[in-house]
Amino acid sequence: MDKLLRLIGQRLGLGLLTLLVVSVLIFSAVELLPGDLAEAVLGQAATEETVAAMREQLGLDRSAPVRYLEWLSGAVVGDFGNSLISGERVSDAISERFSNTLMLAAYAAVIAVPISILLGIMVALLRNTLFDRVANVMTLTSISSPEFFLGYILILYFSVKTGWFPAIASQMGDTSLGDYLYRTFLPALALVLVVTAHMMRMTRAAIINLLASPYIEMARLKGVSPLKVIVKHALPNAWAPIINVVALNLAYLITGVVLVEVVFVYPGIGQLLVDAVAKRDFAIVQACCLIFAATFILLNLAADVGSILTNPRLRHPK
């Protein structure tokens, strides 16, 4: 048990360290600006005085490490400073949109995870049959399509041609849960299609790898029923790869969500990020990037910890 705790502690520490390095990268990327932040924000029309005033307002007279520490300590408690364009607080702009994005990602995940794991296991058991081949071609096609392609196809067929679902998910306001699920069905479905394909393929590969191992063959040879082989012998070892697959794909969802949000005009953090990039509002860009990166790293960390926890060889040391 000691060893297990130490392993998890190590992983957590490493994850924290990675997050720290990434935050340094995000902060210092803005330092790479040609000229400096004040000049970049004010653009061509800047005079000496306005640039100087802006520098003072942004605190650019202090050294970069000091500003980094201030930014980081603010970010930890959810304070990302003020927007460079509108002047409003970044945290205000982000908080609601972030929960919208999380809602959408959770919606997609709740549909995608059970379906894809079930299908993935089925395809692994039926490998090299016609069903497997067709599934292989379909998942490859789905993986290869850009998210906006899937999104627009869904809009064309489920919204424009049939009118079953709304194409644009921009009006949120006070809606009931049922209404919300109905309005955001198409963006969620677009995400589900991409993620399901990824997850199915990864689950299939993991299960096939497992079923080829000698101890499974041994169980089969001694006459254990196929169901029992899977439930008692394969599954305990399969949890680790499956948890890994799920967490990795949830992390993938986080980036896939940006394009889908833009297609469906969904008021999430991805759209905020894209707008901020176009407007060169660095405070918002940095905040969004940090949030995305942190979520991504946390999910990867969860994948690692999950697979350590479910690994029978680590739980029952010799």
């Binding site: 390095v21 990434v22 990268l25 790479l32 992390a251 980036t255 901020a276 990039v277 660095f282 790293i297």
Partner: peptide
């Protein structure tokens, strides 16, 4: 490499493009 791979690529690309 570990660190570079722990950053979502689309997000990082957006960050750099906003700057340059």
């Amino acid at each position: 490499v570990d660190i570079l791979m722990s950053i979502p690529s689309l997000i990082f690309a957006l960050l750099i493009l906003s700057i340059f």
